[in-house]
Amino acid sequence: MHRLRVATSILGLVAVWQLIVLLKWVPDTYFPSPLATLQALWAGLLSGELSKALAQTASRALVGCIAATVVGIGLALLTARYRRLRQAFDPVAEFLRPLPPAALVPMAIFFLGLGWKLHGFILMFACLWPVYLNASSALKAVASVQLRTADSFGYGGWDRVLRVQLPAALPEIFIGIRIAASIALIATVVTEMLAGRDGLGFVLNEAAMTLRIPDMFAALLLTMLSGLVLNAVVLAVRRRAVGWHVGMTASNRG
């Protein structure tokens, strides 16, 4: 039933799209029909231009997201263990978080060039804060009953952090990871658009500049698709890692 509704509304969207083209509400040089877009997509995938760009963008976003997750959680565990470290680090993170990753690109090019180092730095900067700040506040918010339980059974120091606080905080940490995943894609595409030589962002920009509009739409479609896939990957990992939480919330509701 749910799938049917989703299919209906997506078909409806395509129909409206087609209608706009048919009625020539906008010049069709700027707004290709769904079919023309699909053709461009197919051709681009076959020729390798789009498929290569897709692979580059998706792998960058994925690797960046994983790296930021590992570093972010690691940092949060350290600051959860050592209170002074958290007091030092949290305000700095709060301060750096609103800084747009794109704003760093022009200056970062000087230090890091145009290659993978640039992508890595921008991605890490963009994705680290949501993971770290979510993890840090989740680790801090673990119920005091659970902490006392740990204390009373002799779990102190790292034992308490890793065996009680981390599992308890993990469901909330995944909220940060999901945000980081969507930011990873945004940061990848922006970096590719501003300083790229390849990837979907670069194709998007170039197709627009050279007025290959169906190609641009095809790249846009693929970007959207990578976003959906990336989100699905995070959700799948979450189901494996914190299945207990999914079950618990479901049983509380039912």
């Binding site: 997506i10 969207l13 794109a102 969507s182 894609l185 945004i186 595409v189 922006v190 658009m193 979907l200 962002g201 998007l204 920009n205 197709a207 627009a208 500049m209 641009m216 846009l220 970007t223 959207m224 990578s226 976003g227 959906l228 990336l230 989100n231």
Partner: peptide, 12 residues
Amino acid sequence: LLRPLPPPAIAP
């Protein structure tokens, strides 16, 4: 469907 589309990508 639209939510995962990175906003800067619509700039062109």
